[in-house]
Amino acid sequence: MLIAAMVLFALSGWIGSSIPRNTSWTEPDPTTERTIAILVGTNGIHTEIAMPIITPEQDWRGIFPASDIIASSRDYTHVAVSWGERRFFLETPTWFDVNPVTVVRAMFGGEGVLHVAHYVRPAPSSDYRVMHLRPAEYRALAAAISAQIAPAETREVLPGYDTHDVFYTARGTYHLGNTCNQWTSDQLATAGAKIGVWSPFPGGVMKWIADFEPAR
């Protein structure tokens, strides 16, 4: 019964991620119009969205200040934002720390947190792919992500895994129907990008983003 449920979930995730939202969207060409380059990354289980810290459309320094991380003096160029279940995020600094009990609890509902990492010129790769957005699309993405942060009066700033990252309490409840990868998909959809309807797995997100092509 359990195996059948897992197979059904995996199948529904594959089908749901293959049904597109924003079907008429096409990625803009940065050689012919002004765009903002973001990166969508995956570690095989989890996805994140990396954005330039400062553009005319959005300055992230006031929302995700470097003063909230230990290595605050570096010249960071990007912030990468992802969302997930609080206990799983905070209690699982590495995959060797995964606790099955924590996983099961998260599956049935848990408080959301944002994970924010600061990077210096992150390099594109097959697991860290570039997506170009028009200014209005990027503004919509920035507004959607900003709206995820818990109100200032209740927000907690929690230590990250390393010297360049941090957690913030956030809106939303994590569960099987609203996973970290679905969150990434929803933010991109709000920006107007073509992305799957339901993407519980990272592959369901990444398959909509052009693969990395190294320079020749």
Rank of each mutant, 00 (worst) to 15 (best):
T184C: 10
N22Q: 08
D165L: 03
Q148A: 14
W198R: 00
S24M: 08
T92N: 03
R74W: 14
T190R: 12
G16S: 11
H78C: 04
E137V: 08
P20Y: 04
T94Y: 10
D211I: 01
T26S: 15
M1K: 00
E33C: 03
D97F: 06
A5K: 07
A191L: 00
D162Y: 13
D75T: 01
R86K: 13
P93H: 02
D68C: 07
L11S: 11
S126N: 06
D186A: 13
F108G: 07
A50L: 06
P52A: 00
G41V: 04
V166R: 06
Y138K: 04
Y174F: 15
K194I: 03
A144H: 14
V98D: 07
G204W: 01
A136N: 08
V103T: 14
Q58R: 10
R129S: 06
K194V: 04
R21F: 08
S17L: 02
L141Q: 09
V116K: 00
G16Q: 11
A123W: 15
P65D: 15
I45Y: 15
A170K: 01
L141Y: 05
F108P: 04
S72Q: 12
S17E: 04
V7G: 13
A140P: 15
I145F: 14
P20E: 06
A210C: 06
I53A: 12
P56Q: 08
G172M: 08
V7Y: 00
D165M: 04
R139I: 05
V81E: 04
G16A: 08
L133K: 02
